Simulated assay, not measured.
Amino acid sequence: MNNAQRWQCKVCKKKTSAIPNKRQSTTYNQKRNDILPLFAKLLVNKNAISRTCDSLDIGVSTYYNKLEWLYRCCLEFLEKFETKAFSEKSFKEVYINTDKLYYNLNNVRKKGQGVKKYAGLEDNPVQTYVVVSADALSRYVFRADVAYDWEMTVEDLKLDTALYKEDHLNDFSKKNNRLDFSYYPQEPSPNDNQTQS
């Protein structure tokens, strides 16, 4: 059923199977592997997270675990098949269309508010950006960057580095860690006793 290789003993006729690897089974190491096709369909059709969880009878943590697993599968498919195919293929003409989109995240935390009104919580939605480049004829998406900030300048990065000392912070603490260059190189101060490493 899971495409695993099976063996049968010639004496006692007992059957056994080996645990399939990722290449043999797309549902390898998944507890709720029966929901994966419907999960992918709901995700592509832009179904809401709460509605998807209700339809599949799963929790939010399971939803995000499945989402991360599906994303890894897509990256593996891209690396295994499409990268090799495009390295050997040539195109006469390509019309690349790039769109920049703003969208607001509505992940407002209402837990712990009790019976109080939620006034003010939804007034400041988190705004983020997406840049997508695709071929207009084949509709093939070449690249999509989420949380892309096209309003950030080098001067803003230099100011943030000086204010928040981002060149001395871990990656998870940096304000601009989403960028390729998360801090502006600074000259060491007279009281800086850190080593070069």
Rank of each mutant, 00 (worst) to 15 (best):
K13I: 02
V44K: 14
K15L: 04
E88P: 03
I58S: 07
N176P: 04
V130H: 00
T128L: 01
E76V: 08
E79Y: 07
N33C: 13
K158E: 14
D180R: 10
E187A: 11
S87T: 08
T153K: 12
S133Q: 05
Y118C: 02
Y95F: 06
D156I: 10
I19T: 14
W69A: 12
F172G: 03
V130R: 02
T153Y: 07
N47T: 15
S87Q: 07
L121K: 15
K158Y: 12
T27Y: 10
Y164C: 01
A162M: 09
Y184K: 01
C9M: 10
K80T: 15
K10R: 13
M152S: 00
V132C: 12
G114D: 03
K92N: 14
H168R: 15
C12Q: 05
A144W: 01
K15V: 10
Q127P: 01
V154E: 11
L157R: 09
Y129T: 06
K84A: 03
R23Y: 10
A136P: 01
D160F: 06
E93G: 03
N21H: 06
K22T: 03
F142S: 10
R109H: 13
E68Q: 15
K10P: 14
P37I: 03
V115I: 08
K110W: 00
E122K: 05
N176L: 06
S25L: 09
L157A: 06
C73I: 03
N170A: 11
Q30W: 02
N29T: 12
N177H: 15
Y148M: 12
V94R: 05
L101P: 00
N2D: 10
N124K: 06
V108H: 02
Y118D: 11
N2L: 07
M1K: 14
L169K: 15
Y148I: 09
P20Q: 12
A18D: 13
K116H: 05
K116R: 09
N29L: 13
Y64F: 13
A144E: 08
L70E: 06
V130G: 00
L101F: 13
N97Y: 11
N177P: 02
R178H: 11
I96W: 02
A4H: 05
E76Q: 05
M1C: 13
Y140F: 15
R6G: 08
G112C: 04
Y71K: 10
G59Y: 11
F81C: 05
D149G: 04
T195C: 00
K22R: 04
K10V: 07
L42F: 15
D145W: 01
I58D: 04
L56K: 08
K14V: 09
S189P: 02
K174F: 01
K174G: 08
L75H: 09
I35M: 08
Y28W: 07
D123R: 08
Y129M: 04
C73K: 06
Q186P: 01
A48P: 15
N104T: 03
D171M: 09
P125Y: 02
A147V: 12
G112V: 02
Y148E: 10
Y184E: 02
Q194P: 03
Q196H: 06
C73E: 09
G120C: 00
E166D: 13
N97H: 11
A136W: 10
A147I: 01
E88M: 07
E166C: 10
F142L: 13
T26A: 12
P188F: 00
K165C: 04
A144V: 09
T128W: 02
K158A: 11
A48I: 11
S50C: 05
Y63R: 03
V60N: 01
K66E: 12
